[in-house]
Design a protein around this nucleic acid. Structure first.
Lengths: 131, 131
DNA sequence: GATAGTGCTTCCCGTTACTGGAAGGTCAAG
DNA sequence: CTTGACCTTCCAGTAACGGGAAGCACTATC
C-alpha cells in the first residue's frame, strides 16, 4: 500500500505519516521505486497513533504508549501512569481555560458593543478592577 | 528604567520584553550606552499586554487590542468582536478538552494499574470499543 | 512512443510565543 | 583594576506538523 491509500484509510495527512516515520514512530518498507510500502502492522500503528493523538497525548507519550503496547510483558501500571499524568495536564489546562472563560464572558457581556469608545474590556486590560 | 527593573515590575521575562519590541508591540527609547530606556508609557503597554496574554489572547489579538486601546475614537463593537471571537475559540477548546478528559478518566479508572499486562487503555487505543 | 496527469520522493521554510545560551560591551563597588 | 551584575545582539531550539518547490515514477490515452 502506498502512502495515499494509508492516508485515506487512517485519516492522517500524508505529511503527518512521513513525519511519524522521520521521528521513528513507524518503519515502513520501501519498494524498488523508492515508495514507502505500508503493511498491516504499520496501519495498526498509525491508527493507534491517531487515536492517542486524538486524546491529546504528546508525541513522546505516544512513543511510550506504542512501546508499551508492543511489549507483551508490560505492567498496566506503567500505562496508567502515563495516562494519569496526561489527565492531570488536561485538568490544569481546563482550570486555566475556565478561568479565562469566566473573566472574558463577564467582560464581553459588560461591553455595549456599539460605536462609542467606552469599553469595559479595554478598561480591565488597562487596569483590572477586582479579581 | 532598564529592562531588569521593568521585568521585575511587570512580571514579564526580559526575553519576552525584548521580543515584544522585536515584533513592534513596544518602542522603548535607547540610552547612550545602547540600553533600552523604558518610560511610563512602555510600562503601561507591557502591563496591558501581560493581562491580555493572561486572558489567552494571541499576540496578534494583543496588537489589535493595543491599537484599539490607543485609538480614542474606537468603537467598543470592534473590541467586543475580538473578545467574542477569542471566547469562541476558548469554548471550542474547552469542549475538546472536556471530551478528552471524559474518555481518559473512564479509561484510567478502568485500568487496574498493577503489574499485569492487561490494560483497557491500550485496548481502547488499539481499537476503541464504543463511543 | 510521446504526453498528460496524478502520485510519490526529498528538502527547506514557516508557524506560535517565546526560552536558552554564547560572545561581548557597560556599569557600580571595592 | 578587577569582579560581578547587567545589558546588548544573534543563533538555535521548542511541538507537531503544513506549504510548496524540484524532480522522479506510474498509468492512461492518443
Amino acid at each position: 500500500m502506498n502512502i495515499g491509500d494509508v492516508s485515506r484509510l487512517s485519516g492522517l495527512p500524508a505529511k503527518t505519516i512521513r513525519y511519524y516515520e522521520d521521528i521513528g514512530l513507524i518503519q515502513p518498507q520501501r519498494g524498488d521505486n523508492g515508495y514507502r510500502r505500508f503493511r498491516d502492522r504499520d496501519l495498526h500503528k498509525l491508527a493507534f497513533l491517531g487515536r492517542a493523538r486524538h486524546l491529546g497525548f504528546s508525541i513522546e507519550d505516544c512513543r511510550t504508549l506504542l512501546a508499551l503496547y508492543e511489549d507483551r510483558g508490560r505492567a498496566s501500571a506503567d500505562v496508567k501512569q502515563v495516562a494519569r499524568q496526561h489527565l492531570e495536564r488536561i485538568d490544569s489546562k481546563l482550570k486555566e481555560l475556565n478561568q479565562m472563560r469566566e473573566t472574558l464572558a463577564t467582560l464581553v457581556s459588560a461591553c455595549a458593543g456599539d460605536d462609542r469608545p467606552d469599553c469595559p474590556i479595554l478598561a480591565d486590560l488597562a487596569a483590572p478592577s477586582a479579581s
